[in-house]
Design a protein around this nucleic acid. Structure first.
Length: 195
DNA sequence: CCTGTGATCAGCT
DNA sequence: GCTGATCACAGGC
């Protein structure tokens, strides 16, 4: 038994998933994410919170968003527009309903697999956007609710100091003013530039 | 660079 | 029924 602090899936190599989603979103930038050994460096994230009208968790738990109200340090995966899978990391605590949407990676590992899955040769378009990223990493509903600290997931914190920029979130109509989108400064692998 | 539109379906009212 | 945390493509500037 640990004396204090987050443990298990909620704390992974420097990223503490029990903290507020904007802080987790910021600290995830620079972290390497792999699924079955395929992935890269997280360069873009967005925070969501149950008090935020744009969040799936805003109206409380439902069968779809149940994982978002589950343990921190787990995945919440959902289907967007009937076409695209999207990957979130659950934050805070059981029953809270906060998460971070992983929006873009700089591909580093298993690039051939990602090109194959997406039939896309331009490395800048392999993981630039949540739907593209999920397709490149073969993320589907099967990973919903799974812990991020055990296979097929792998998270490795950045070893060097990172400069992070932020701005308004993308593709939502509510709470547009909250600057809860975060990115790796100067990265050419984000889904859209930061201003 | 920007804007508009179709695809396609689970979830919610 | 309608909406949407998206993408790819088409067309205009």
């Amino acid at each position: 038994m640990r004396a204090a602090g987050a443990s298990g899936a909620s704390r992974l190599r420097g990223v503490d998933f029990t903290r507020d989603s904007p802080e987790v979103a910021r600290r995830l930038i620079g972290t390497t994410l792999l699924v079955d050994g395929v992935g890269g460096v997280i360069v873009e994230t967005e925070a969501y919170d149950p008090r935020d009208p744009a969040s799936h968790s805003f109206s409380g738990p439902t069968p779809r968003n149940a994982a978002m109200f589950g343990p921190p340090g787990c995945a919440y995966v959902y289907l967007s527009h009937g076409i695209h899978w999207c990957l979130n990391f659950v934050c805070r605590e059981v029953g809270f309903g906060a998460g971070v949407l992983i929006r873009a990676l700089e591909p580093t590992t298993g690039i051939a697999s990602m090109m194959d899955r997406r039939r896309q040769r331009d490395p800048r378009l392999l993981c630039a956007g949540p739907g593209r990223l999920a397709q490149a990493l073969a993320i589907t509903r099967e990973l919903n609710g799974k812990r991020l600290d055990v296979p097929p997931f792998s998270l490795t914190a950045a070893t060097t100091r990172i400069r992070v920029v932020c701005g308004p979130r993308i593709g939502i109509s509510k709470a547009v003013d909250q600057p809860w989108r975060f990115g790796l400064s100067g990265s050419r692998y984000v889904s859209r530039p930061f201003r």
